[in-house]
């Protein structure tokens, strides 16, 4: 089946099995390996991407569900190799350790910050409840997200 996906600002037209996992398609066909597969069961959040601006687990999303939708992966967040402000907050707060969960957590956090201007710590923690990080204990991650929320608020609202 021919599918049209808008991925990181470009239109991708591709013949694909509509019932294949979106995460597999993004990683293997398009080479977008920033998103990881930690469980393929919707439990770990390593595969989190934004679909029309909202975080979803790409491993539980079938390709046809992404047809004509706006997909953003970690590769589409900023210019190649340059940290976005959110990513810079993570680096500065020590919110990344092994880095396997990190792109997924960045996408969940980005999704939260696009929908909630001034999230409380509790809202941040709940927004990240679908992401497992086994390294950081979440403390520094929550701080980084809160710092970025404050920065955006100051800059924009």
């Amino acid at each position: 089946m021919k599918l049209t996906l808008r991925i990181n600002g470009s239109v991708v037209e591709q013949d694909a099995d509509p019932l294949a996992r979106l995460s597999e398609f993004l990683r293997q066909v398009l080479g977008l390996t920033g998103l990881k597969e930690g469980c393929c069961e919707g439990e770990c959040g390593a595969c989190t991407i934004l679909m029309d601006g909202a975080p979803v687990h790409a491993c539980l999303t079938l390709i046809f569900q992404a047809h004509e939708r706006e997909i953003t992966t970690v590769e589409g967040l900023g210019d190649a190799g340059v940290l976005t402000d959110l990513q810079a907050q993570f680096a500065g707060a020590g919110a990344v350790q092994c880095g396997y969960c990190t792109p997924g957590i960045i996408m969940s956090a980005e999704g939260l910050l696009r929908s909630t201007l001034t999230p409380s710590d509790e809202e941040i923690r709940h927004a990240l409840a679908g992401n497992i990080c086994r390294c950081t204990g979440f403390e520094t991650i929550v701080r980084a997200v809160a710092a970025e929320a404050a920065r955006r608020c100051e800059a924009g609202c």
Partner: peptide, 19 residues
């Protein structure tokens, strides 16, 4: 001091064996 490899990890450019 932030991790010297933080940027690679945060941008998803670090290639793990599965990648």
């Amino acid at each position: 001091i932030p991790l010297i490899d933080a940027a690679e990890k945060l941008t998803g450019r670090l290639r793990f064996a599965a990648d």
